[in-house]
Computed example of a mutant assay.
Amino acid sequence: MFGDMMNMMGKLKETQQKVEDTKKRLDTVLVDESSNDGKLKITLTANRSIKSIEIDDALMQDKEELDDYLILTLNKAIEKATKINEAELAAVAKQGMPNIPGMDLFK
Rank of each mutant, 00 (worst) to 15 (best):
I84N: 02
A91D: 15
T73A: 03
M8N: 08
T73H: 04
D68L: 10
L44N: 08
T45I: 06
L66E: 00
M6N: 09
Q61G: 08
T43A: 12
K24Q: 09
D67T: 13
F106A: 04
K83W: 00
M60S: 12
D27L: 03
I50E: 03
I42A: 04
D104F: 03
K24Y: 00
K11C: 06
K107S: 14
D27Y: 01
L44K: 11
A46V: 00
T28N: 13
M5K: 10
R48C: 13
S34C: 09
I71G: 02
G3D: 15
I78M: 10
D21W: 05
M103Y: 12
K107N: 13
M60H: 05
K80I: 00
E33V: 04
I55K: 05
K76D: 14
K11W: 02
G38L: 09
E86F: 08
A87R: 01
K80H: 04
K107A: 14
K24T: 06
S34D: 10
S49N: 15
L59C: 06
M8T: 01
K107Q: 11
E14V: 05
T15S: 13
V31Q: 00
E20P: 03
K80P: 01
Q61K: 15
Q95P: 03
D57R: 13
L12H: 11
K13T: 11
V29Q: 03
M97W: 05
A90E: 09
V29T: 10
D104N: 14
S35N: 06
D62G: 05
I42H: 06
T45H: 01
E64H: 09
K39F: 12
M9V: 14
K24A: 10
L59G: 05
D4R: 05
S35G: 07
V19N: 02
P98C: 01
K63P: 08
N75H: 07
D62Y: 02
K94A: 13
N85T: 07
D37T: 11
E20V: 11
V19A: 02
K23A: 05
E33T: 12
Q61D: 15
T15F: 09
Q16R: 11
L89S: 03
I50G: 04
I50H: 03
D57V: 13
Q95I: 09
K18W: 06
E14G: 12
G10W: 00
A87N: 04
T82H: 12
K83T: 14
D56F: 07
G102F: 12
